[in-house]
Amino acid sequence: MSTSVSCLHGCNVLWRHNPLLVRLLGLCPLLAVSTRLIDGIALSILLAAVGLWTAALVSGTRRLIPPEARAICRALFLATGAGIVTVLLKTFRLDLAAQLGIYVPVMAGCCLLVAQSAEFSGRHPPALSLRSGAGVAAAMAAFLIPFSAAREVLAYGTLLRDADQLVPALPPEFALRLWPGDQGLAVAALPPGALLLLGLVLAIHRRLTPAPPADRRV
């Protein structure tokens, strides 16, 4: 694959065919846990871990598992990955676990399961599948991180508040303050604000993407 083609492919995955934007996967966790940049970052990391774990296992076992059992095995691998990151989060980042709560498995279930194409991991060798898995993870991060950053700025006028929950070395009061005080548009932190913002992003996305993509598979 030449550089320009893979670059184009990258743009397509991150923007044009972004599973969160095109198919609106994972709306519920999106509204619930994208109020702070740190949540967006943490969720992106966790979903990337689950996605890569699943892609690796599915393509690694593709010769061993008969086609009719692949879907359920894939779901099992994914559930295992989600279970592992949930346990690890509870062990090492309890505050963050309390914040993200059930949404890691929810997001993994409703979003990764659909976004990562099953046939792809099932048919291709692990290296290529991992790249596709990484693409899905990057697409989710490309949406989640700017979106949660925008909501945090609008709602609190800060960036990276409570970052100590992810990086304990930071002081608890750490935050990049864009204006003094803690007041902003409270609605941005609420589900209605998330919907408004999402609508705005979708409008821009549809405007910049002329025709609906003929092939909706990522």
Partner: peptide, 14 residues
């Protein structure tokens, strides 16, 4: 029998 067996093994692994 292969499909149920595969699911069983994957479940045990999980």
């Amino acid at each position: 029998w292969r499909a149920p067996l595969a699911v069983l093994i994957v479940s045990l692994f999980s």
